[in-house]
Amino acid sequence: MSGNTYRNPTLLAKVVTALDVVSHGRAQLGIGAGWFELEHDCLGYEFGTFTDRFERLEESLNIVLPMLRGEKPSLEGKWYRVHEAVNSPAPLSRIPVMIGGGGEKKTLRMVAQYADESNIICAPDEVARKLKALDDHCAALGRDRSEITVSYQTSCVIAPTKEQAEQELEDAIARTPELGGRRGGVIVGGPQEVAGTYRKLLDLGVDGFTANMPANGHIPGRVSLLGETLAPLIAA
């Protein structure tokens, strides 16, 4: 997943294409408008206004997507200018595009217009409204809603036991205090507790999940444990 503001769209298209080649056709592109102002400031990237970022994203999509589809786009936009941008060698496959975010007016309209997948970011009680907004945008644009996969973004701390998971979250907050502000939105527990929470989220109508593991993803075995816990839910 890439914030659009961090890379020129032509470079992004080339990077994703290179990833597709080295992964033998398994690349995906996840993109969003960008949201983390502190990171922009620290790294020296222009953050801009909310409107700026969404204008940039849409212009970028009109460059990146054609490049990934074997076209040579030209654009004289407000933020980007390209002339017959070449992407050679081409991707080995049709690279799926996922747009992340939950904005009902801008983000989900762009999902309906450009994307293969929507990665919704919102509170659980807002999912139904986001899905309805996506349905409405698809209808307005003449897009078949069934073509779009909807995933739900989560953060998870899983360990063999609930007690271990809770301790690993506390240890992470001690190292990185800003994680404490996200505590309420984190799914924490052993495999049984985590599976139960994700099962309830599937009932909201999403097709699957993306999962961040900011607290303990670096611990050997934790990522595979989450995969083993979630795989039966998705397969069902």
Score class of each variant (00 low, 15 high):
residue 172 A to M: 11
residue 58 E to P: 15
residue 17 T to E: 08
residue 96 P to A: 03
residue 199 R to P: 07
residue 11 L to T: 15
residue 224 S to C: 05
residue 21 V to D: 06
residue 28 Q to V: 11
residue 43 L to D: 08
residue 64 V to G: 01
residue 105 K to C: 05
residue 215 A to D: 14
residue 61 L to T: 04
residue 70 G to P: 08
residue 26 R to Q: 09
residue 86 V to E: 11
residue 152 Y to C: 02
residue 204 L to I: 12
residue 207 D to R: 00
residue 128 A to K: 13
residue 196 G to A: 15
residue 225 L to I: 06
residue 4 N to Q: 11
residue 218 H to K: 07
residue 101 G to I: 15
residue 74 S to R: 11
residue 112 A to K: 01
residue 126 E to N: 12
residue 130 K to P: 09
residue 142 G to Y: 12
residue 184 G to K: 01
residue 184 G to F: 01
residue 188 V to G: 09
residue 75 L to D: 04
residue 5 T to Y: 14
residue 3 G to S: 15
residue 227 G to P: 05
residue 210 T to Q: 05
residue 156 C to E: 04
residue 108 L to Y: 04
residue 129 R to H: 12
residue 135 D to N: 09
residue 179 L to H: 05
residue 194 V to R: 00
residue 109 R to N: 09
residue 183 R to Y: 14
residue 190 G to R: 10
residue 91 P to R: 00
residue 145 R to H: 04
residue 106 K to F: 05
residue 59 E to I: 03
residue 182 R to T: 10
residue 205 G to P: 08
residue 185 G to L: 07
residue 174 A to E: 14
residue 193 E to M: 07
residue 110 M to H: 03
residue 27 A to P: 01
residue 58 E to A: 05
residue 98 M to F: 05
residue 109 R to S: 06
residue 6 Y to M: 15
residue 190 G to Y: 06
residue 216 N to V: 08
residue 6 Y to K: 13
residue 228 E to Y: 01
residue 52 D to W: 06
residue 22 V to L: 06
residue 228 E to H: 04
residue 174 A to N: 10
residue 102 G to K: 12
residue 171 D to Y: 03
residue 152 Y to R: 02
residue 26 R to A: 07
residue 53 R to F: 09
residue 197 T to N: 15
residue 87 N to Y: 01
residue 162 K to E: 12
residue 145 R to G: 04
residue 163 E to H: 14
residue 215 A to Y: 13
residue 153 Q to L: 02
residue 173 I to E: 11
residue 157 V to I: 07
residue 81 R to T: 11
residue 42 C to Y: 15
residue 6 Y to V: 14
residue 85 A to Q: 02
residue 211 A to P: 07
residue 3 G to L: 09
residue 146 S to E: 09
residue 72 K to I: 03
residue 32 G to T: 07
residue 27 A to H: 02
residue 149 T to W: 00
residue 91 P to V: 01
residue 235 A to K: 11
residue 52 D to N: 06
residue 182 R to D: 14
residue 109 R to Q: 10
residue 196 G to C: 15
residue 110 M to T: 01
residue 110 M to E: 02
residue 85 A to G: 06
residue 59 E to S: 03
residue 54 F to H: 14
